[in-house]
């Protein structure tokens, strides 16, 4: 659903940033730190990383920070006062990839089914995504196998595609996108009659999603499969924490004398203590069960309950796994198993 197409000159990005900031918005954009790239608040477009396939961490933190206060409290004698958070600052995420943009709907499906998580929802409502489509991909990318594509518009407010001139073809996709254009209409010129497709990376479909989702319920009991796949898994949380769609969390209290805060922190089903009871009983005592949970949750349970897949095919988990657990390879193996 494209509202309109425009041309954004490459040197207009800086001007657009200035207009967005003048409007009171915080801009998060990819910034290099050593070999890694993180979404960070930037003052100028010149701070942005130039060339990257994918950022180290996803932009998930903009709407679901790795640590956030759920509320603060103050003890006053025997009484307790609770203070809720104020409204989040309007934020523009610039330079995220289409797969990342698609992940917001997945996160939202958890935070707004049944009980409504107002904190997440207001962060999401205050966030706009100016996505840049992918001109390059690597062997870990598999967006096209899970319903996305390098130029997919899902979840973006504006999608930019770099065309031959170095300028951006801008697809204005939502009311939020339109509102940003309205801040600086002079920067958005008439779009050339160019097809964005030829500038997009080629990401071949690598497995049959339908086959995979059909096979998973049965594969659950194939202990040997999960054991063989996960023998080298070290049980850290790197995959979950770089994932744009992983949403599991922990709740922790921290206090200083009479005041304190209840925090929400990212958590991972790969940790052995994720399910451990105080009694010592653990429903998932071994790593193969935890690996199975990760795969089943993303590709089967999520599908059933939230009507979304829990994966956008960004490939971060596999790029960053210290033990080279390659999700794509393992999904293919399950989908193709007889």
């Amino acid at each position: 659903m494209i509202i309109e197409k425009k041309l954004l000159k490459q040197d207009s990005v800086e001007k657009l940033f200035a207009k967005l900031k003048a409007d009171g918005r915080r801009i998060l954009a990819p910034k290099a730190q050593g070999d890694e790239i993180f979404f960070e608040q930037v003052a100028s477009a010149s701070e942005m990383a130039k060339d990257y396939i994918q950022t180290t961490l996803s932009p998930k933190g903009a709407v679901f920070p790795r640590v956030e206060a759920l509320f603060r409290y103050q003890m006053e004698g025997k009484d307790v006062k609770i203070e809720n958070n104020s409204e989040p600052q309007p934020t523009v995420i610039f330079g995220l990839r289409p797969c990342d943009a698609a992940s917001f709907a997945i996160l939202n499906s958890v935070f707004s089914w049944d009980y409504q998580d107002s904190q997440f929802k207001s962060r999401l409502a205050q966030t706009a995504a100016i996505t840049v489509s992918c001109s390059r991909a690597d062997e870990y990318c598999f967006c096209t196998s899970v319903g996305g594509s390098p130029g997919d518009t899902k979840g973006s407010d504006i999608l930019l595609t770099r065309i031959g001139s170095g300028d951006y073809l801008a697809e204005i996709l939502t009311e939020k996108g339109k509102a940003m254009v309205t801040l600086a209409p002079e920067l958005f010129a008439e779009a050339p009659s160019e097809d964005k497709e030829k500038y997009l990376a080629k990401v071949p479909v690598k497995f049959d999603l339908k086959k995979l989702t059909e096979k998973l319920p049965e594969a659950f009991n194939n202990n040997e499969l999960w054991m063989e796949q996960s023998l080298r898994c070290l049980g850290c949380g790197a995959c979950a924490f770089v994932c744009p769609a992983c949403v599991c969390f922990d709740i922790q209290d921290e206090s200083k004398r009479e005041s304190g805060v209840r925090l929400r922190c990212w958590d991972s089903c790969g940790f052995s203590l994720f399910t451990a009871h105080t009694s010592g009983h653990n429903p998932r005592p071994v790593q193969s069960q935890r690996w199975r949970q990760r795969v089943m949750h993303k590709f089967s349970y999520f599908n059933d309950r939230q009507k979304y897949l829990g994966c956008v095919g960004c490939g971060r988990c596999s790029r960053k796994c210290p033990a080279d657990m390659n999700l794509l390879e393992h999904l293919k193996a399950i989908a193709e198993a007889r």
Binding site: Q33, R66, L234, C236, F241, C265, L273, P322
Partner: peptide, 27 residues
């Protein structure tokens, strides 16, 4: 600046052959 990046995935601990404690002090 370095520690500010840490997401507490405990990849350092999990990959370390000497971090074999069943229950880490961190937990």
């Amino acid at each position: 600046e370095q520690f500010a990046k840490c997401v507490r995935c405990y990849g350092c601990r999990a990959s370390c052959p000497l971090c074999y404690c069943e229950k880490c002090l961190a937990e």
